[in-house]
């Protein structure tokens, strides 16, 4: 029995455009990637302000304290009670005091409080910081394109 010979035409897909686009996607994602867990914490819904602009120069020694709408204090990734926060702040102050080239005045306490958090709780956090001799604070808000002075 004889079989007829079939000539097979090999079709090759041009992969170049796909690889180009994929590399561009990778480059884009690498540029916008943000590994920082403290900033942009999704548990905190920051209050809006048109004057809240990112600082021109990064803080020398930032310490971030976060306050959720249900009055949970988050410091260094841990949920803390007010007493726990005070102990942690005193510990930080002691660490800074051991460094000869660092001063406690160089430390900026960044307070990221939820827009529905109680102001009294924020004041309590500030008081705890003052007791640990920290005196420079940055109240963080989310930048707004519209004026927040008039209720929308």
């Amino acid at each position: 029995m004889r079989y007829a010979k079939h000539s097979m035409v090999q079709a090759e897909m041009d992969m170049t455009p796909m690889i180009d686009v994929t590399f561009q996607l990778i480059a884009f994602f690498m540029f916008v990637l943000n590994f920082s867990e403290v900033d942009q914490d999704q548990r905190i819904n920051l209050p809006l302000s048109e004057l809240a602009r990112p600082p021109d120069v990064a803080y020398d020694e930032p310490l971030t304290i976060q306050l959720t709408d249900v009055e949970q204090i988050i410091f260094a990734g841990d949920y803390l009670s007010p007493d726990g926060l005070k102990a942690a702040l005193l510990r930080e102050a002691q660490i800074i005091a051991t460094h000869p080239d660092k001063k406690i005045g160089d430390v900026t306490i960044i307070i990221r409080a939820d827009r529905f958090a109680k102001t009294g709780k924020v004041q309590e956090i500030i008081k705890l910081c003052q007791e640990a001799e920290f005196d420079t604070f940055a109240l963080r808000g989310q930048q707004s394109d519209r004026s927040t002075l008039v209720e929308q």
Partner: peptide, 20 residues
């Protein structure tokens, strides 16, 4: 990168100096 992507909203500070 797709899974770790999150939209970054700009944040800013009000700086206050408040010693005890």
């Amino acid at each position: 990168f797709l899974l770790s992507f999150k939209i970054v909203l700009p944040e800013g500070d009000f700086n206050i100096r408040m010693p005890s």
